[in-house]
Protein backbone atom coordinates (compact mmCIF):
# COMPACT_ATOMS: atom_id res chain seq x y z
CA UNK A 1 0.00 0.00 0.00
CA UNK A 2 1.40 3.44 -0.87
CA UNK A 3 2.59 5.48 2.10
CA UNK A 4 0.46 8.58 1.43
CA UNK A 5 -2.86 6.73 1.40
CA UNK A 6 -2.21 5.86 5.07
CA UNK A 7 -1.82 9.50 6.02
CA UNK A 8 -5.06 10.41 4.23
CA UNK A 9 -6.92 7.81 6.23
CA UNK A 10 -5.41 9.20 9.42
CA UNK A 11 -6.65 12.72 8.72
CA UNK A 12 -10.15 11.39 7.98
CA UNK A 13 -10.32 9.43 11.20
CA UNK A 14 -10.18 12.33 13.65
CA UNK A 15 -12.21 14.75 11.59
CA UNK A 16 -15.53 15.66 13.18
CA UNK A 17 -17.89 17.16 10.64
CA UNK A 18 -20.98 19.22 11.15
CA UNK A 19 -23.18 16.17 11.14
CA UNK A 20 -21.39 14.83 14.20
CA UNK A 21 -22.35 17.91 16.22
CA UNK A 22 -25.90 17.92 14.87
CA UNK A 23 -26.21 14.29 15.84
CA UNK A 24 -25.02 14.94 19.38
CA UNK A 25 -27.22 18.03 19.75
CA UNK A 26 -30.35 16.27 18.52
CA UNK A 27 -29.53 13.28 20.69
CA UNK A 28 -29.33 15.55 23.73
CA UNK A 29 -32.54 17.36 22.83
CA UNK A 30 -34.49 14.16 22.39
CA UNK A 31 -33.09 12.86 25.66
CA UNK A 32 -34.36 15.95 27.49
CA UNK A 33 -37.76 15.46 25.86
CA UNK A 34 -37.91 11.87 26.98
CA UNK A 35 -36.77 12.53 30.51
CA UNK A 36 -39.19 15.43 30.90
CA UNK A 37 -42.07 12.97 31.06
CA UNK A 38 -40.57 11.47 34.19
CA UNK A 39 -39.83 14.91 35.63
CA UNK A 40 -43.39 16.09 35.09
CA UNK A 41 -45.01 13.02 36.60
CA UNK A 42 -42.74 13.22 39.61
CA UNK A 43 -43.29 16.96 39.83
CA UNK A 44 -47.07 16.63 39.85
CA UNK A 45 -46.94 13.88 42.41
CA UNK A 46 -44.65 15.93 44.66
CA UNK A 47 -46.92 18.96 44.29
CA UNK A 48 -50.18 17.25 45.18
CA UNK A 49 -48.53 15.29 47.98
CA UNK A 50 -47.03 18.43 49.50
CA UNK A 51 -50.43 20.08 49.57
CA UNK A 52 -52.30 17.01 50.75
CA UNK A 53 -50.00 14.74 52.74
CA UNK A 54 -49.85 16.90 55.87
CA UNK A 55 -53.62 16.66 56.06
CA UNK A 56 -53.77 12.98 55.16
CA UNK A 57 -51.41 11.98 57.96
CA UNK A 58 -52.55 14.65 60.41
CA UNK A 59 -56.14 15.76 60.68
CA UNK A 60 -57.78 13.28 58.36
CA UNK A 61 -59.34 10.10 59.66
CA UNK A 62 -58.66 7.76 56.76
CA UNK A 63 -61.33 5.35 57.97
CA UNK A 64 -63.87 8.12 57.86
CA UNK A 65 -62.60 9.28 54.45
CA UNK A 66 -63.24 5.88 52.95
CA UNK A 67 -66.42 4.88 54.74
CA UNK A 68 -68.43 7.99 55.53
CA UNK A 69 -70.79 9.56 53.07
CA UNK A 70 -70.69 12.91 54.78
CA UNK A 71 -68.77 15.45 52.76
CA UNK A 72 -69.19 18.75 54.59
CA UNK A 73 -65.85 20.47 54.24
CA UNK A 74 -67.22 23.96 54.72
CA UNK A 75 -69.09 23.35 57.94
CA UNK A 76 -68.00 25.93 60.55
CA UNK A 77 -67.92 23.77 63.64
CA UNK A 78 -68.20 20.20 62.40
CA UNK A 79 -66.46 19.70 59.04
CA UNK A 80 -66.70 16.18 57.63
CA UNK A 81 -64.49 14.63 55.02
CA UNK A 82 -66.22 11.39 54.03
CA UNK A 83 -65.54 10.58 50.40
CA UNK A 84 -67.52 7.37 50.11
CA UNK A 85 -70.44 8.97 48.27
CA UNK A 86 -68.05 10.65 45.87
CA UNK A 87 -66.20 7.39 45.26
CA UNK A 88 -69.51 5.60 44.76
CA UNK A 89 -70.64 8.34 42.38
CA UNK A 90 -67.48 8.08 40.31
CA UNK A 91 -67.64 4.28 40.34
CA UNK A 92 -71.32 4.17 39.34
CA UNK A 93 -70.84 6.61 36.49
CA UNK A 94 -67.69 4.86 35.28
CA UNK A 95 -69.31 1.44 35.55
CA UNK A 96 -72.31 2.49 33.49
CA UNK A 97 -70.00 4.26 31.06
CA UNK A 98 -68.13 0.99 30.47
CA UNK A 99 -71.39 -0.85 29.90
CA UNK A 100 -72.11 1.66 27.17
CA UNK A 101 -68.58 1.96 25.80
CA UNK A 102 -67.50 -1.67 25.63
CA UNK A 103 -70.07 -2.90 23.08
CA UNK A 104 -69.70 0.24 20.97
CA UNK A 105 -65.93 0.31 20.97
CA UNK A 106 -65.43 -3.42 20.59
CA UNK A 107 -67.94 -3.53 17.75
CA UNK A 108 -66.35 -0.55 16.04
CA UNK A 109 -62.85 -1.96 16.50
CA UNK A 110 -63.83 -5.35 15.09
CA UNK A 111 -65.56 -3.74 12.15
CA UNK A 112 -62.68 -1.40 11.35
CA UNK A 113 -59.93 -3.96 11.87
CA UNK A 114 -61.55 -7.09 10.43
CA UNK A 115 -64.40 -6.25 8.09
CA UNK A 116 -64.10 -2.75 6.63
CA UNK A 117 -61.77 -2.24 3.72
CA UNK A 118 -60.35 0.62 1.71
CA UNK A 119 -62.11 3.94 2.03
CA UNK A 120 -64.70 2.80 4.54
CA UNK A 121 -61.96 1.80 6.90
CA UNK A 122 -59.88 4.95 6.46
CA UNK A 123 -62.97 7.15 6.73
CA UNK A 124 -64.11 5.44 9.91
CA UNK A 125 -60.70 5.75 11.49
CA UNK A 126 -60.66 9.48 10.83
CA UNK A 127 -64.19 9.85 12.22
CA UNK A 128 -63.36 7.92 15.37
CA UNK A 129 -60.31 10.10 15.94
CA UNK A 130 -62.49 13.16 15.37
CA UNK A 131 -64.92 11.90 18.01
CA UNK A 132 -62.06 11.48 20.44
CA UNK A 133 -61.14 15.11 19.94
CA UNK A 134 -64.52 16.57 20.97
CA UNK A 135 -63.95 18.72 24.08
CA UNK A 136 -65.52 17.30 27.21
CA UNK A 137 -67.46 20.49 27.87
CA UNK A 138 -69.30 19.88 24.61
CA UNK A 139 -70.23 16.43 25.81
CA UNK A 140 -71.42 17.97 29.07
CA UNK A 141 -73.50 20.41 27.06
CA UNK A 142 -75.06 17.53 25.12
CA UNK A 143 -75.80 15.84 28.44
CA UNK A 144 -77.55 18.90 29.80
CA UNK A 145 -79.44 20.04 26.75
CA UNK A 146 -80.26 16.81 24.88
CA UNK A 147 -79.91 13.80 27.17
CA UNK A 148 -81.53 15.42 30.18
CA UNK A 149 -84.88 16.33 28.52
CA UNK A 150 -84.80 12.96 26.78
CA UNK A 151 -84.50 11.13 30.10
CA UNK A 152 -87.21 13.29 31.68
CA UNK A 153 -89.61 12.54 28.82
CA UNK A 154 -88.77 8.91 28.20
CA UNK A 155 -88.65 7.67 31.79
CA UNK A 156 -91.00 10.24 33.29
CA UNK A 157 -88.40 11.44 35.80
CA UNK A 158 -88.36 14.75 37.64
CA UNK A 159 -84.70 15.38 36.84
CA UNK A 160 -82.67 14.31 33.83
CA UNK A 161 -79.18 14.60 35.22
CA UNK A 162 -77.66 11.73 37.16
CA UNK A 163 -75.92 8.39 36.84
CA UNK A 164 -77.72 7.45 33.62
CA UNK A 165 -77.07 10.73 31.88
CA UNK A 166 -73.43 11.09 32.85
CA UNK A 167 -72.76 7.36 32.40
CA UNK A 168 -74.02 7.39 28.84
CA UNK A 169 -72.21 10.62 28.03
CA UNK A 170 -69.00 9.33 29.56
CA UNK A 171 -69.39 6.03 27.74
CA UNK A 172 -69.73 7.80 24.41
CA UNK A 173 -66.71 9.92 25.30
CA UNK A 174 -64.54 6.96 26.23
CA UNK A 175 -65.61 4.79 23.29
CA UNK A 176 -63.45 6.46 20.59
CA UNK A 177 -60.16 6.10 22.42
CA UNK A 178 -61.08 2.57 23.44
CA UNK A 179 -61.93 1.83 19.82
CA UNK A 180 -58.55 3.07 18.66
CA UNK A 181 -56.65 1.01 21.20
CA UNK A 182 -58.78 -2.10 20.68
CA UNK A 183 -58.30 -1.78 16.93
CA UNK A 184 -54.54 -1.58 17.42
CA UNK A 185 -54.75 -4.73 19.51
CA UNK A 186 -56.65 -6.56 16.77
CA UNK A 187 -54.32 -5.28 14.08
CA UNK A 188 -51.38 -6.64 16.06
CA UNK A 189 -52.72 -10.17 15.72
CA UNK A 190 -50.56 -11.73 12.98
CA UNK A 191 -52.39 -12.18 9.69
CA UNK A 192 -51.05 -15.72 9.43
CA UNK A 193 -53.55 -16.72 12.12
CA UNK A 194 -56.45 -15.41 10.07
CA UNK A 195 -55.13 -17.01 6.92
CA UNK A 196 -54.69 -20.34 8.68
CA UNK A 197 -58.21 -20.30 10.05
CA UNK A 198 -59.75 -19.16 6.77
CA UNK A 199 -57.88 -21.87 4.90
CA UNK A 200 -59.55 -24.38 7.20
CA UNK A 201 -62.92 -23.04 6.15
CA UNK A 202 -63.65 -20.69 9.05
CA UNK A 203 -66.03 -17.85 8.25
CA UNK A 204 -65.00 -14.26 8.94
CA UNK A 205 -66.95 -14.26 12.18
CA UNK A 206 -65.51 -17.60 13.29
CA UNK A 207 -62.06 -16.20 12.62
CA UNK A 208 -62.80 -13.12 14.70
CA UNK A 209 -64.49 -14.92 17.56
CA UNK A 210 -62.31 -17.99 17.84
CA UNK A 211 -58.92 -16.69 16.77
CA UNK A 212 -58.51 -12.92 16.65
CA UNK A 213 -60.30 -11.94 19.86
CA UNK A 214 -58.53 -14.56 22.03
CA UNK A 215 -55.19 -13.67 20.44
CA UNK A 216 -55.75 -9.95 21.04
CA UNK A 217 -57.21 -10.43 24.50
CA UNK A 218 -54.50 -8.59 26.40
CA UNK A 219 -54.67 -5.54 24.20
CA UNK A 220 -58.43 -5.48 24.57
CA UNK A 221 -58.12 -5.60 28.35
CA UNK A 222 -55.72 -2.68 28.09
CA UNK A 223 -58.29 -0.76 26.03
CA UNK A 224 -60.93 -1.41 28.67
CA UNK A 225 -58.65 -0.32 31.50
CA UNK A 226 -57.69 2.88 29.73
CA UNK A 227 -61.39 3.55 29.25
CA UNK A 228 -61.94 3.06 32.97
CA UNK A 229 -59.04 5.40 33.66
CA UNK A 230 -60.59 7.96 31.38
CA UNK A 231 -63.91 7.57 33.19
CA UNK A 232 -62.35 8.10 36.60
CA UNK A 233 -60.46 11.16 35.49
CA UNK A 234 -63.12 12.89 33.43
CA UNK A 235 -64.36 16.06 35.08
CA UNK A 236 -66.30 18.59 33.09
CA UNK A 237 -68.85 16.37 31.36
CA UNK A 238 -69.52 14.51 34.60
CA UNK A 239 -69.85 17.75 36.54
CA UNK A 240 -72.48 18.96 34.08
CA UNK A 241 -74.43 15.72 33.58
CA UNK A 242 -74.33 14.05 36.99
CA UNK A 243 -76.47 16.44 39.00
CA UNK A 244 -73.64 17.06 41.48
CA UNK A 245 -75.58 15.90 44.53
CA UNK A 246 -73.75 13.96 47.25
CA UNK A 247 -75.57 10.69 47.25
CA UNK A 248 -74.99 6.96 47.12
CA UNK A 249 -76.94 6.05 43.99
CA UNK A 250 -79.62 3.40 44.27
CA UNK A 251 -81.18 3.91 40.86
CA UNK A 252 -79.77 5.01 37.52
CA UNK A 253 -81.77 8.21 37.75
CA UNK A 254 -80.19 9.34 41.02
CA UNK A 255 -77.99 12.37 41.00
CA UNK A 256 -74.44 11.75 42.09
CA UNK A 257 -71.26 13.67 42.52
CA UNK A 258 -67.89 12.55 41.21
CA UNK A 259 -64.47 12.95 42.85
CA UNK A 260 -63.15 15.02 40.00
CA UNK A 261 -66.22 17.24 39.80
CA UNK A 262 -65.94 17.94 43.53
CA UNK A 263 -62.40 19.22 43.13
CA UNK A 264 -63.31 21.30 40.11
CA UNK A 265 -66.34 22.85 41.76
CA UNK A 266 -64.89 23.54 45.21
CA UNK A 267 -61.23 24.37 44.77
CA UNK A 268 -61.95 27.94 43.72
CA UNK A 269 -63.81 28.63 46.97
CA UNK A 270 -61.43 26.88 49.33
CA UNK A 271 -58.94 29.28 50.95
CA UNK A 272 -55.41 28.22 50.08
CA UNK A 273 -53.91 26.04 52.81
CA UNK A 274 -57.19 25.55 54.64
CA UNK A 275 -58.40 22.10 55.68
CA UNK A 276 -60.94 22.17 52.90
CA UNK A 277 -58.22 22.96 50.39
CA UNK A 278 -56.09 20.12 51.72
CA UNK A 279 -59.04 17.74 51.71
CA UNK A 280 -59.55 18.47 48.02
CA UNK A 281 -55.91 17.66 47.42
CA UNK A 282 -56.47 14.42 49.27
CA UNK A 283 -59.14 13.59 46.71
CA UNK A 284 -56.56 14.46 44.09
CA UNK A 285 -54.03 12.07 45.58
CA UNK A 286 -56.68 9.37 45.70
CA UNK A 287 -57.55 9.91 42.02
CA UNK A 288 -53.89 10.00 41.09
CA UNK A 289 -53.23 6.68 42.81
CA UNK A 290 -56.31 5.03 41.27
CA UNK A 291 -55.54 6.16 37.71
CA UNK A 292 -51.90 5.26 38.20
CA UNK A 293 -52.86 1.74 39.25
CA UNK A 294 -55.28 1.40 36.34
CA UNK A 295 -52.66 2.54 33.84
CA UNK A 296 -50.13 0.22 35.41
CA UNK A 297 -52.55 -2.67 35.05
CA UNK A 298 -53.21 -1.73 31.42
CA UNK A 299 -49.50 -1.55 30.75
CA UNK A 300 -49.06 -4.91 32.40
CA UNK A 301 -51.80 -6.43 30.27
CA UNK A 302 -50.20 -5.14 27.08
CA UNK A 303 -46.74 -6.34 28.05
CA UNK A 304 -47.97 -9.77 28.99
CA UNK A 305 -49.52 -9.98 25.56
CA UNK A 306 -46.57 -8.69 23.57
CA UNK A 307 -44.28 -11.72 23.35
CA UNK A 308 -47.03 -13.95 22.04
CA UNK A 309 -47.41 -11.92 18.85
Amino acid sequence: MPADSGSIAKVDLDHRGRSWYVDKAVGGLVFVGGVSAIVFVMGIFVFISREGFGFVFGTLDIGEFLTSIEWRPTSENNPRYGALALIAGTAAVTGLAMLVAVPFSLGAAIFIAEFATGRTREGLKVLVELLAAIPSVVWGFIGLSIMSPLIIDTFDQPVGVGVLNSGVILGLMAAPIMTTIAEDALKAVPDSYREAAEAMGATRWQVVWQVVLPAGRNGLVAALLLGVGRGFGETMAVLMASGHAINIPTSPFDSVRALTATIAAELGDAPRGSEHYQALFTLGIFLFVITFLINLAADFAVRRGAPRG
Partner: peptide
Amino acid sequence: RRQVGMVFQRPNPLPL
Protein backbone atom coordinates in the same frame (compact mmCIF):
# COMPACT_ATOMS: atom_id res chain seq x y z
CA ARG B 1 -61.72 -25.43 2.17
CA ARG B 2 -62.91 -28.38 4.16
CA GLN B 3 -62.28 -30.55 1.07
CA VAL B 4 -59.07 -28.77 0.12
CA GLY B 5 -56.72 -28.25 3.04
CA MET B 6 -53.63 -26.10 2.94
CA VAL B 7 -50.20 -26.07 4.56
CA PHE B 8 -48.28 -22.81 4.43
CA GLN B 9 -44.66 -21.78 4.05
CA ARG B 10 -44.23 -20.80 7.64
CA PRO B 11 -45.86 -23.11 10.16
CA ASN B 12 -48.89 -21.16 11.37
CA PRO B 13 -50.50 -23.00 14.28
CA LEU B 14 -53.21 -20.94 15.91
CA PRO B 15 -52.40 -19.41 19.31
CA LEU B 16 -54.39 -22.17 20.98
